[in-house]
Design a protein around this nucleic acid. Structure first.
Lengths: 211, 211
DNA sequence: GCAATTTTTGACCGTTTGGACAATCGTTAA
DNA sequence: TTAACGATTGTCCAAACGGTCAAAAATTGC
């Protein structure tokens, strides 16, 4: 009731020093690298510590457990993940809005593949840590945007289609280029698999969803 | 040179008894359940053994290591995985062939989600065990079918689009309903997330790719 | 029925892992 | 200068893990 206030989890007074902020960020970066490659269970604290250039006990001085690192990563990730969809504007031109959304998602697949894989891994394992978020914030956001798309369709500005599955299809196709990158590159081969593959994908997807 | 013949891996003479065949199949089923939920590193031999209703040493009597179980699973999986694409027939009606392919892939997402997740997991981790297959057999198959699609497009039977990315898009969207199932159900909610979601998805995807 | 073979298990082993701890080292501010 | 506090590390531990082994139990072939 008095000073501490919070019976719940997070530290009541983070009050981080400069070094703490820097080191925690350094650890997050290293952990992202390791977790996205090996998954949660497949990664060890030692690996993360080495990638961050510090000893294991030192890392555990900044994060009290492996789980704690993972959770802060997921938290940050979800923010960035929802942002592009949030920006879809009901008052904008439908084709332009959809096109922008696709472009941003492809750019994210290109520029933040580790984040995408981390997210995919979490969902694959049954989303044990973010289930409430999926059923709450995410569902609400999708429902809201689906309604916008439904109106665009009603106005004849977009092709007839189920808005929810429309959004799923954009997610699936764009994230595919991050999550299944090795397969994409293996199949395209050295010639077509160069860095142009993201531009090719974006062009293809625009046509697919708007053409 | 003489009797053994194979310098390579697999046992020259499997010569399995009835019990061995049954038990090995039982173990594969249990391993599929466990691996697809927790990934390779996240699964333990004990978990698999318990799921198969036997002791750990007993399981190791049938498969010499955890890795060995995983490998036979992947092998079987890849066969089933390539089959639908193999069936795409150059002499058939393009729309019908694509429609059938999409339907089969959606059915596989519905009926074999564990296999899909196992595969996704392997690719996510960089496909350490199936890279040669991706660059060889898979690439060849995709190139062959892409050529067929290219001709269909040239004949005006399909919309203009890059055949490789066209195939990727079908993979991504259909497998999404297996790999990201928890997210799909969370977003659709109890009403729309019932078992009809696969039929809805199939209908949506047909329109998307052929409409 | 019995010997040979296959199947099953309890006990065990070395290694890896997440994490705790106390001691040390560095920094800072009075 | 020094006391207080922040940062770092070597050492250690208990649990979990993959896998072995010898011996027991069950099955099979005669």
């Amino acid at each position: 009731m008095s000073r501490t206030g919070a019976i719940v989890d997070e530290p009541a007074k983070p009050k981080r020093t400069r070094i703490q902020r820097e080191r925690r960020e350094l650890i997050r970066e290293a952990a992202l690298e390791v977790f996205s490659q090996h998954g949660f269970r497949g990664s060890t604290i030692d690996q993360i510590a080495e990638a961050a250039g510090m000893s294991k006990p030192n890392l555990l001085y900044y994060f009290k457990s492996k789980e704690a690192i993972f959770v802060t990563l997921i938290d940050r990730l979800m923010e960035a993940w929802l942002a592009p969809l949030r920006e879809m504007n009901a008052d904008g031109d439908p084709a332009t809005e959809i096109r922008s959304y696709i472009r941003r998602k492809v750019e994210m697949a290109r520029d933040f593949p580790r984040e995408s894989r981390l997210f995919a891994n979490e969902i694959l394992q049954g989303a044990p840590r973010i289930m409430p978020l999926l059923e709450g914030e995410l569902k609400d956001l999708v429902d809201e945007k689906a309604e916008i798309i439904r109106q665009w369709i009603r106005q004849g500005k977009l092709r007839e289609a189920d808005p929810h599955h429309f959004i799923f299809a954009i997610w699936a196709t764009t994230q595919h280029y991050a999550d299944f990158d090795v397969q994409v590159r293996a199949v395209l081969g050295p010639e077509k698999g160069g860095e142009s593959r993201f531009e090719d994908a974006a062009a293809f997807l625009e046509k697919l969803f708007l053409g």
